[in-house]
């Protein structure tokens, strides 16, 4: 905690990683500031050192990797996710979910994908679609570069704010043609945050579910990957009302400890997990049917 924090703006990723490793504690990585500044302004957080990674060219850009993934630099802002032609064409689920993020244009213009993920905030809108897409993330820590599934990162609270590691890239396999997708965000009110969110991907074969990915957010401390439960219920079936109801029940049952906060009380959140799952899947199926 410091009234007079210090500040560094390293020029290269290597410099940044070295600096962070050298700071015993109290170093906080900052870029767009959308996640950190509210807490700093409210006096909840008072870092000793800011390490501004906003100048690192290595963290910018949306590219195709040699192995055919979409590589999204950690400094990519929501606005770019919404408008970038590659993301729109190859990862429409992500492009759409980025439009549903709260805070309005102002925040979409500055909030980065890296900041959003590192926040590990259960109410945010970028992690559920990426998890549904089985994205991977790339880290630099000291001299090490680590690549791991997003799921692993999200399960590990040491990767949150204040971590020594720098999230550099998100890697996603492009969505296959004909894949149905949907992002369903249920808001209790006109604010920024959802009370339950669901990202769904569906492959259909002759009108029946052939494969499904389903992630539910904003209902518990961590995202819930309901893909297995969904697959067990749905693969080989038509997604009709009965299947939807069964899915809703199964997803709600996965919510062991629902959040209870300004977005709504626990029992309702638990029930809503099922509702958004059902709706997301229905929309994804409809889209797959059209495509």
């Amino acid at each position: 905690m410091s009234l007079y924090p210090s500040f560094a703006r390293p020029r290269t990723l290597a410099d940044a990683a070295t600096l962070l490793a050298s700071l015993a504690s109290g170093g906080v990585v900052i870029a767009g500031g959308q996640e950190l500044m509210p807490s700093i302004n409210q006096g909840v957080l008072a870092p000793e050192v800011y390490v501004d990674i906003g100048g690192l060219a290595e963290l910018r850009g949306i590219t195709e990797t040699p192995e055919g993934r979409v590589g999204i630099g950690a400094l990519t802002v929501h606005r770019e996710l919404q408008t970038d032609p590659r993301v729109r064409a190859q990862l429409p689920l992500l492009a759409h979910a980025a439009t549903r993020a709260g805070g309005g244009r102002q925040v979409h213009n500055r909030g980065t994908i890296g900041g959003n993920l590192v926040a590990q905030h259960p109410l945010y809108d970028i992690a559920p679609p990426l998890l549904a897409l089985e994205a991977e993330v790339e880290w630099v820590k000291g001299r090490e570069t680590v690549r791991q599934p997003l799921a692993a990162m999200l399960a590990d609270s040491r990767h949150g704010l204040g971590s020594e590691a720098i999230l550099t890239r998100v890697l996603v396999v492009p969505m296959a043609d004909g894949l149905g997708w949907a992002y369903e965000k249920l808001k209790a009110s006109g604010g920024a945050y959802g009370s339950a969110n669901a990202a769904a991907l569906v492959k259909l074969k002759e009108g029946r579910v052939a494969a499904v990915r389903l992630v539910v957010g904003a209902v518990a401390d961590r995202l819930i990957d309901a893909s297995e439960a969904a697959a067990a219920l749905l693969v080989g079936r038509r997604f009709d009302a009965e299947a939807g109801a069964a899915l809703a029940g199964a997803v709600s049952a996965l919510v062991a400890a629902p959040l209870s906060d300004a977005q709504g009380p626990g029992p309702w959140r638990q029930a809503m997990a099922g509702v958004v799952a059902q709706r997301a899947l229905a929309a994804a199926v409809a889209r797959a049917g059209r495509g």
Binding site: P38, Q42, A188, S189, G190, G191, A192, Y193, A262
Partner: peptide
Amino acid sequence: RSFMDYVMPRAED
């Protein structure tokens, strides 16, 4: 304690 918790109507509402 903040406008995150105290939700007031926005244009969409």
